[in-house]
């Protein structure tokens, strides 16, 4: 699965939780929780949804690593045993 595909999954799951968010206007380097107005329950639900969709274990201790879009893509790509494309 490529970065683009992982990104599409994040976009899709975020749209389920916070449909009002314009995904393309988010800064991928900044904290998603603040930009998309996600409370701790929303964020927990997002992490759980990504786990189910991608089959990647995301221990709660690592939750902060997926709190930005860039961080999430890097983490999920790494955990799926793939190296990000150069």
């Amino acid at each position: 699965m490529s970065d683009t595909e992982i990104l599409a999954v994040i976009r899709d799951e975020l749209a389920r939780l916070a449909p009002e968010v314009e995904f393309d206007s988010l800064d991928p380097a900044l904290d998603l929780r603040e930009q998309a107005d996600l409370d701790s329950m929303d964020f927990l639900n997002l992490v759980t949804a990504l786990h189910h969709r991608l089959g990647v274990d995301i221990p709660d201790a690592d939750a902060a690593k997926v709190a930005t879009i860039n961080g999430a893509v890097a983490y999920l790509t790494g955990r799926r045993g793939m190296t990000p494309p150069a």
Binding site: R16, A18, P19, E20, V21, D37, D39
Partner: peptide
């Protein structure tokens, strides 16, 4: 989704 988004925009996530 539209209703959920409407409520979130007006009320906030909390």
């Amino acid at each position: 989704r539209e209703l959920l988004g409407h409520a979130r925009k007006r009320l906030g996530a909390a």
